[in-house]
Design a protein around this nucleic acid. Structure first.
Lengths: 232, 232
DNA sequence: ACCTGAACACCGTTCAAGT
DNA sequence: ACCTGAACACCGTTCAAGT
């Protein structure tokens, strides 16, 4: 009855990835869950890499940033980052998927990238710099989406807590003369900080680097591009 | 004659990884190259993950940052980043190794991390913020070490050039209304920029974000910590 | 167009056994 | 202490064949 479709495959793949980690997403496992032979998947995807690209595409799809030329570039870029994080957070495996694939092969991601490139250009950076900055920013964004405690996926709550406990104790029992700060900050290192702190501060960290370089470029202050009073 | 030692295994693993990409580093392949049975490796490493940790440790080992309390924190942090990039650049597979492992399990990396943490603390950040910043900075650093054109490893020069050509043409033939900037910047996007530009600008990008946040924190200017005239 | 069956060439890892 | 042999339970993928 339910015909095997590209979408159904990708969605099941994401379901497995979310629940058990990306390494559990396997052609054979996927086929089994879908009640089909492994080879059936090769009709819809050239190979496993393209399946992963499909997963990534599905994740970002539907996230659109409306370019608004009246608003300052940095506000819009910040919004893009925050929005992307929010979208990716809906799937626990999103960050690992996007880290695994070649982001240049993900169509929906290219749309986000294009917008980021445009905003960076408006900030006054050269072509080459804009490429570097946008790559850096989008990588940083997906890293943010992974969350404060980048727990290895495929763990129950209990296991994650236990492994954190072990790691904390490992840190705390390190030689204090060689690793003074790690010993001292063992707790925040393994626990991560509160999600809200992590997110706002993380976005600030990414953005302020770009803003600082842009300001240095235009001579001390952010450019107020386009028309209208771009208040901040 | 040549006894199988942990070091020998790790070095051969790096040799394979450098030449053919990390995915070619396999227990069985490694054993074959070393003239030994696959199971022999399990005497020296608990499992493959620990082997990869061993590779990472070997890469960073020997890189030491001398903490100098007379110099400003940001200069030292910048030097740490630049130095780490330089060390990692010696092995083409270095970045992918460090991206694969849990960096918290790599002893030599922990030393670098501890220094970074100390410097961030001196910048005036809280414990939690320092953890976030140091993680962010070190991730960014290894990304920088991957080089401007993050060519998938295991390619000959010819193949890499060919794949870049294909990718460039793909970008250039994208619908221009949906992807205007990608079409326009297809060349720098796939080629990457000159290594020197990439490195200096990349380090600036990473550092200026941290410096800007630190400045905001202490009220507009970088703190001149310790004694002595910390000129810039 | 869409899927199956059988087979190939790999993986990592365990476990008992050898020296 | 250090390594081997045989076996297990997996992978992704190709290729010819079915409907």
């Amino acid at each position: 009855m339910g015909k095997l479709t590209r979408e159904a495959v990708v969605e099941q793949a994401l379901r497995i990835g979310d629940a058990e980690g990306l390494q559990a997403v396997t052609i054979r496992r996927l086929a089994q869950d879908l009640g089909v032979t492994p080879m059936a998947l090769y009709w819809h995807f050239k190979n496993k890499e393209q399946l992963t690209v499909g997963m990534a595409d599905h994740l970002v799809h539907g996230f659109v940033v409306v370019e608004n030329h009246a608003r300052p570039w940095n506000d819009q870029l910040r919004e893009l980052v925050a929005g992307l994080v929010r979208v990716l957070r809906r799937h626990p495996c999103a960050a690992s998927v996007l880290e695994e694939v070649d982001q240049m092969e993900v169509p929906s991601f290219l749309r986000v990238w294009d917008t980021a490139l445009g905003l960076t250009r408006r900030a006054g950076f050269t072509h080459e710099e804009s490429c570097l900055i946008s790559k850096y920013l989008l990588r940083g964004t997906t890293a943010l989406a992974a969350g404060p405690a980048n727990r290895r996926p495929g763990m129950t709550e209990r296991e994650a807590a236990e492994s954190a406990r072990v790691k904390r104790i490992t840190f705390q029992s390190l030689p204090q003369d060689a690793y003074p700060h790690i010993v001292e900050m063992a707790v925040p290192l393994v626990e991560g900080c509160a999600t809200e702190v992590y997110d706002t501060f993380g976005v600030d960290l990414l953005m302020s680097g770009i803003e600082a370089l842009a300001a240095r470029r235009t001579g001390g202050d952010l450019p107020r591009d386009g028309a209208g009073d771009s208040s901040r």
